[in-house]
């Protein structure tokens, strides 16, 4: 299972029901393929940065889901064929989320470490640390 994010643009001139139908279709593909829909976010009508299929605006829909790679293939195929969909992008985010989590934890660890030992602990380990570094660098130069 991988976590993906599907952001696609639907024709803003389409009726609300049609837009809803496209969103539901994507979700249906995910659930049929054995995945789960985690989040559906309708951004609404936004101005496009450039013209796409002679449209200056688009209705953005973001769907976050976890599923296998076959599901993505199917979703992309359907969106490509769909007349109302102007553009779509699929981004795999599970690795990024993991990475972000790691960074966040490292940051919290550092934050915990920093304020606590500064008055007592920090000067202690630093003092013996410095001469060791100086010695080692000196050896390297000699070598």
């Amino acid at each position: 299972m991988r976590i993906y994010e599907e952001l696609f643009i639907v024709d803003p001139n389409a009726s609300d029901e049609d837009i809803e139908a496209v969103a539901n279709q994507v979700q249906a593909v995910v659930t049929d393929g054995g995945g789960t829909v985690d989040k559906v976010d309708k951004w609404g009508v936004r101005r496009l940065a450039y013209r796409v299929k002679k449209r200056d605006e688009g209705f953005y829909i973001l769907v976050q889901f976890s599923a296998g790679p076959d599901v993505v293939k199917e979703i992309e195929r359907r969106l490509r064929v769909h007349d109302l969909v102007l553009k779509y992008i699929t981004v795999r985010i599970d690795e990024k989320l993991q990475w972000l989590d790691k960074r966040k934890k490292a940051r919290e660890k550092r934050a915990l470490k920093k304020p606590a030992p500064v008055p007592v602990g920090a000067p202690g380990p630093k003092m013996p640390g410095e001469p060791v570094e100086a010695e080692s660098s000196g050896q390297e130069e000699q070598a």
Partner: peptide
């Protein structure tokens, strides 16, 4: 990525 989905030019 943002350019691809017409968020940026």
């Amino acid at each position: 990525q943002a350019r691809n989905i017409a968020l940026l030019p």
